[in-house]
Amino acid sequence: MSGVSEDFVTIALPKGRLIDSIGNYLSLCGCNFSFTGRELVTIDSENRLKFLLVKNADLPIYVKHGIAGLGICGEDVIAETGYEFYKLFEFSFGSTRMCLACRKGDKVSPDRQIKLKVATKFPVFAERYFHSMGVPVEIIKLSGSIELAPILGLTHYIVDLVETGNTLKENNLEIVEVLSWVKVYLISNPAYYKLNYKRVDDFVRRLKEGRH
């Protein structure tokens, strides 16, 4: 955990869809900061918090190794790493659905004795889900454009995050089932929290105040 500053509470933020919402929310709580240009590290205006801008999927790794004591990210990303974190605060924004989808009208009947193929960016989540349902399944990990898999015949189903559902519609896909709601959390490395609980609790208190 050599990267953790003694003076700052260090927080990893995810690049991508959540960053603007996080910035706005933290601003409501009196934590003002901005990343200028290609900057990836910045300090808040009160000189108390240090923010690191990292790739969404890498965020848990930075928190796990204590480079950042805290991080803000979706449950989907946490589940894929298999790491254990403290979830200290649930944000009101950014929640989305992890869905099972297929081509319109192409739902495979459960009595068909064939092994299902599922494409996903979230193999750990998907494997756990189908395993818990006792459904044998072949999971194919893709890194993007998941919607293509059923269209091109690679798999029957996809497991993916769905916000509005527009991308699915445009690709002639439909939701078969909502598997889980994915929420956005403030997470902490457990050891970091234990050693810095007062400062971290102060920060969480500020976040709670921002909710009202």
Binding site: M1, S2, N189, P190, K194, L195
Partner: peptide, 11 residues
């Protein structure tokens, strides 16, 4: 009990 130390990411 568990013991924590600055610089180490688990107990």
């Amino acid at each position: 009990f568990q013991v924590y130390l600055k610089g180490v990411d688990t107990s």
